[in-house]
């Protein structure tokens, strides 16, 4: 804990010479910058995907949770009678706020994506559809099914649970996958930065021996490398994140926010989330470099 405190004070120290002792260029420096930029870029995209999927799950869940459809398929001479009976049952069912029969135009709109706009659906023998809107309390779907079974034999109640649940679950999983990807990328960043820090320290044994000769403690030497690598990772990740956020803003479709393809992006305060990505990578770099420095300095004796 004390070591971390020393490193943190070293990180924010006014002593600019502390990290100047670490050569500013070289393979390890470029690797850190490149890795953190790429990881920052990918993490912002994963975050955007995760948030979009979460939004979609919420929307589907909210939009369909309070609605149900009653489909009545019956011979044409019985259809109106069964519809009337169904409406009567629905009106007396607790938990139902509104029930309305879909007219021909509404049915046409429903079928348009599959049949096109110029199909004379009035000539088709289509079932009657009743759109049901629940109130806050909701209705007992099993009880309603039993009542409908008795009086409306052609009626099939669909409370959307059957297909709503897998969609919401899928969107939720996609969101979790996005967050898991961020976790994996954080781990990969830590591994790469550790590798780069160890390579840098091994390549700079002369710097370390000079520092030790003039009385530098391990904490001082470690903080020099930690500061250099953390700030480099932070700036690389910031660059990657800014580019990714710009691209997300650019590719984000204005037309349909509720599609996973066109809805990837951030909304409102969600735009604050990408700020945390460089900070996350900076923190990861801090601890990864600290661990690497401790190990290398211990090995050098």
């Amino acid at each position: 804990m004390t070591e971390v405190f020393h490193l943190l004070t070293g990180l924010f120290s006014q002593d600019s010479q502390r990290d100047r002792v670490v050569p500013p260029t070289g393979f390890a420096a470029n690797l850190t910058l490149f890795t953190s930029s790429v990881m920052g870029f990918l993490m912002v995209f994963a975050l955007a995907l995760s948030l979009a999927a979460a939004r979609l799950a919420d929307h589907w869940s909210d939009a369909l949770a309070r609605s149900a459809t009653l489909k009545i398929a019956a011979p044409s001479e019985q259809l109106d009678h069964q519809v009337e009976k169904a409406l009567a049952i629905l009106k007396t069912t607790p938990g139902i706020e509104q029930a309305s029969v879909l007219d021909l135009n509404e049915k046409r709109r429903l079928l348009e994506p599959w049949l096109g706009s110029d199909v004379p659906i009035e000539l088709l023998s289509l079932p009657a559809l009743i759109d049901i809107l629940e109130d806050e309390k909701g209705f007992d779907s099993e009880n309603l099914r039993l009542r409908l079974f008795a009086d409306v034999p052609g009626g099939v109640l669909d409370d959307h649970t059957r297909w709503r649940r897998p969609l919401v679950i899928a969107a939720g999983r996609l969101s979790a996958l996005g967050l898991f990807s961020i976790l994996l990328m954080t781990g990969a960043s830590a591994a790469m930065i550790t590798l780069a820090a160890r390579a840098a320290m091994s390549a700079n044994t002369q710097v370390i021996s000079v520092l030790r000769l003039i009385g530098a403690t391990d904490a001082y030497i470690a903080s020099a490398f930690v500061r250099r690598f953390s700030l480099r990772a932070l700036s690389g990740a910031a660059l990657g994140s800014i580019i990714a956020a710009g691209l997300v803003h650019f590719v984000n479709g204005k037309e349909d926010k509720l599609s996973i393809l066109t809805g990837i992006g951030f909304e409102g305060l969600e735009w604050l989330w990408p700020i945390f990505i460089p900070l996350l990578i900076g923190i990861v770099a801090f601890f990864a470099t600290h661990r690497a420095a401790k190990k290398v300095l211990g090995t050098l004796g």
Binding site: R212, L213, I214, G215, T217, D218, A219, G301
Partner: peptide, 10 residues
């Protein structure tokens, strides 16, 4: 310790 030696070297 290693740090003691470092401090002494100053």
């Amino acid at each position: 310790t290693r740090d003691d030696i470092a401090l002494m070297r100053r």
